[in-house]
Amino acid sequence: MSGVETVRYPPGSVIHDMLQSGRAVSAVVNEEFVARTVVIESRARLMVESGLACVLVAPLIARGTVQGIAMFGRSTGRPAFTPDDVSLAGELASRAAICLDNARLYSRVQDIALTLQRALLPTALATGPYVDVAHRYEPGSRITEVGGDWYDVISLPDGRVVLVVGDVMGHGVSAAAAMGRLRITTKALARHDSEPDELLTELDACAQEAGIELATCLYIVYDPRNGRARIASAGHPPPLVLRPDGTVETLDEVLGVPLGVGGEPFRTTEIELPDQAVLALYTDGLIEARGRDIEAGLEALRAELAAEPGPLEEMADRILARLLPDPLTDDTVLVLARVRRAP
């Protein structure tokens, strides 16, 4: 009934008997039943006028918690509920209760993972006078749990800037927690001014100690004094460079093995970036899609990067709008950084 938020059943009603026993029960709908079961007069009148001759009520109980009740009714002229009907209703209610509780638990875990992920991802990135950054994080659909994509921009002494993007295999709370651990560790290690390959070696040891079996990471240090970028990768998709003349270069010289695998050394490579060059860092959600080859996705990203150079924020929005599948099935990170030389 409209306006009624809580339905109360008086002591001694069929509902009380059912909940105390935890089993489905059936009852004949007569004046005594209505008087013992329905407190609100308008609801009692509605039940009397409905033509119900008997009802079958079953508890929705899962993991010791009452989720609700299921009520079945038969009108006058139809046979009364049999013991087999009562047994079947109890079985159906039990399975429905498990499904409801699973959905509740899934939603709760999903909310925890989303909250954890949002807390661990940066809200504002550190930038310097020689690096402009536009960043985007697009979570996957609710069908898939949150992933372990992460990114950061870290300021170092002498005006140098670190750009880092990573991706932890898996989804849910464990992936979000692993992502947070790697991001925080990376930030701490970066301030020790390690070489990119040395930092990834330390991060790999951290991943193995934490039981993180597979994660990728791309780590770039840009020095505006000489325009050079030092790069190391742990199995992450290669960064792209949009040069001022409109050409796009894929920096795939150093790929490396993912974090958590161990056994293979990382390497640092160095390139010189022209003034006003744009670095593009991303996760595989941007170039991988069902029915599309990853090389085709990478080529599409290269084309979009070179299509309409302009303000970074506009470029980031345009790239995501044209490349992301609908619906989005995986988390996606995109970081665009325009670099300048120091005077």
Rank of each mutant, 00 (worst) to 15 (best):
D245C: 08
R230F: 07
I294A: 15
R292E: 15
R267W: 08
A234I: 02
L273Q: 06
R243F: 13
D245W: 12
D275S: 14
L301I: 09
G227W: 06
I294T: 15
S233D: 01
R267D: 14
T283V: 06
P274C: 14
E253A: 06
H236G: 10
G285M: 02
T247Y: 01
E272M: 15
V248K: 05
I287N: 09
L240H: 06
E308T: 12
G291T: 01
V254L: 09
E308W: 08
L255K: 10
P237A: 04
G235V: 02
A307S: 08
R302Y: 00
Y282G: 00
R228E: 14
T250P: 01
L301F: 09
E264Y: 11
T269G: 15
V254A: 08
L251F: 08
P265G: 02
E299W: 07
F266E: 05
P238Q: 00
D284R: 03
E308L: 05
L305E: 03
L240D: 02
A289I: 00
A306C: 05
R290Y: 02
I294V: 15
A296E: 15
D252L: 02
L281V: 09
E288R: 06
D293S: 14
L279N: 06
R228D: 12
G285P: 03
I271Y: 14
E288W: 05
L281D: 01
L279W: 07
G227R: 10
D252V: 02
A280D: 01
E304V: 02
R302T: 03
E288M: 02
P274D: 11
P239D: 11
A232T: 08
L305Y: 02
P258D: 10
P265W: 05
E299R: 15
F266W: 10
Y282M: 02
R225H: 15
A303L: 05
T269W: 04
I271K: 03
N226C: 13
I231L: 14
V241A: 10
G291E: 13
A303S: 14
L281W: 03
R225E: 15
A234G: 11
G246T: 03
P258G: 04
L251Q: 11
A234N: 00
I271L: 15
P244W: 09
A229Q: 03
A300G: 03
S233V: 01
L242H: 00
V254N: 07
L286Y: 14
R290D: 11
H236F: 04
P244G: 03
L301V: 04
I231K: 12
A229L: 12
N226F: 14
T247I: 06
N226V: 14
Q276H: 09
R243V: 07
G235Y: 07
D293Q: 08
R228K: 10
E304I: 00
E249D: 14
I271T: 14
G262K: 04
G260D: 13
E308R: 13
L240R: 02
V248P: 11
E308H: 10
H236N: 05
P238T: 01
L305H: 05
G260S: 07
R243E: 12
S233H: 04
R292A: 06
P237E: 11
I231G: 00
V261C: 02
I287A: 04
D245T: 12
G262N: 05
A306G: 13
L305V: 00
